[in-house]
Design a protein around this nucleic acid. Structure first.
Lengths: 249, 249
DNA sequence: ACCGAAACGAGAGCACTGCTCTTGCTTTCT
DNA sequence: AGAAAGCAAGAGCAGTGCTCTCGTTTCGGT
């Protein structure tokens, strides 16, 4: 969404008008689909409705996306990139002031992710809700999906450099260290097994909290869910990144 | 699923054969739908396929469930009851040995919930995945949904009696105490605001971990996700129920 | 024991979906 | 300039949830 205009202009220079209108139409299809998702949920994108809105016949859509799943994949990639970019910025904003403020960086990232999820609940659900049945995300989705996790891993890396240890020190199960080493190699980070495991626990907790709030599990229970989430984020940060004077277990 | 045979027999005594075959057919429809959900996910139950399998015509199904959503609701209630019953049993098994072993009780409940989710991933997703769009769970689903949370609340209640405080003590946001008091009144429990808030955070974390594992977010990253979850459960328990000798923050 | 009322299954049908295939037309490449 | 590729349109297929009507079967009150 952020870059299709550039794509279109680029295409116009390199190739002819056909390529340009193709890029524009592709972007329009995606835009309408995104709106459909926002309104009716990820499961309810409707190719025929998109075609109708564009004044086309439904079969024409298939020139641009081979199937409904392919359209979904494109939107998935965009959503991962949006979330990745937003959290990268949130982290950078704190890190450029004080890169060692790992608690602040985590809270900023969590808050940014939450704000995005609240603003675009159905896009969030597209990423972290029930996977569409029979649909397995192709390999081109993994790179954008990694962006967000990379942000967290960099914070963990910095925390490791500072000698932080989680409040509740995990007992690393056998076999897991090899998996974690592979992650370290791939991401060029160096946090300890304990820190990474705690980080992953907090990562799942973060998305659990967002999902619960989004799915309305706290409806009629907690009024100010935003305030509750803010406190959850602070607690999570403290659980992985205690001040060094604190006792741990 | 656990009780439809009894329902059928009961109906046979109280009313005639028509009521019995109705109860049996209702149960059969639900059983087939449950199998469909297990195979193809919650979004893909198919009334016509159910009718075909029963040798009926599709319109006949509507004598038993007024719509697809109503069928879904019935399955939702069953799933909530299954999860509630399983976790109640897991808690009771530990509690009858030592009711004050709140950490053990929590781990038992978490483990049981995870085992159920792994065995019936799509049923779990029916409860905690993306809500079906345009579908708002009617009021008859809230009672069974409360069963599981009640288990957690009773553990928190016991922990409060023992004087436990979470490792990271939450700063209770303004407004939230009123909400929590309402929960205490409704459930006849008496845990402190801090303990309840920490409990809710851990509750969301628990489901976040299960959802992440179920959705395959750790695929190609962590091999032994079961072991990882077991450790997560232990960490979560420790975060809310530290041993009283431990320092807290 | 009977008879009106209610419940039921079958069947046809409606509006809708994703998707395919063919048919002409237009842009692009050589 | 002509072949090749890209394109929109239209018809059509198989499938869905759901509605309505029509005989038949069962139930409940008299």
């Amino acid at each position: 969404m952020l870059s299709f205009r550039c794509d279109a202009r680029y295409a116009a220079l390199v190739t002819g008008v056909r390529a340009r209108v193709r890029a524009e139409l592709t972007a329009e299809i995606k835009a309408i689909a995104r709106r459909q998702i926002a309104e009716d949920g990820p499961a309810n994108i409707n190719l025929r409705a998109i075609a109708r809105e564009l004044g086309m016949v439904s079969s024409a859509i298939y020139r641009y996306f081979a199937s409904r799943d392919e359209l979904l994949t494109a939107l998935l990639v965009d959503a991962y990139n949006d979330l990745g970019e937003i959290t990268e910025r949130a982290d950078a904003a704190v890190a450029e002031v004080d890169p060692t403020d790992v608690e602040g960086r985590f809270v900023a990232v969590a808050t940014a992710a939450y704000a995005w999820a609240r603003a675009e609940p159905n896009q969030y659900l597209l990423l972290f809700g029930t996977p569409v049945p029979g649909y397995s995300a192709p390999t081109d989705t993994v790179a954008p999906a990694t962006r967000f996790t990379s942000v967290l891993l960099r914070i963990l890396d910095e925390a490791g450099r500072l000698g932080a240890r989680p409040v509740v020190v995990p007992a690393v199960p056998p076999g897991v260290p090899d998996d974690l080493q592979r992650v370290r190699d791939l991401t060029a980070t160096a946090a300890s097994d304990e820190l990474m495991l705690a980080g992953m626990q907090v990562w799942t907790a973060l998305f659990g909290a967002i999902s619960f709030i989004l799915n309305g599990q706290f409806r009629n229970v907690i009024g100010d869910v935003d305030a509750m989430f803010a406190e959850f984020a602070r607690m999570l940060a403290r659980q992985v990144f205690p001040h060094e004077s604190d006792a741990r277990r």
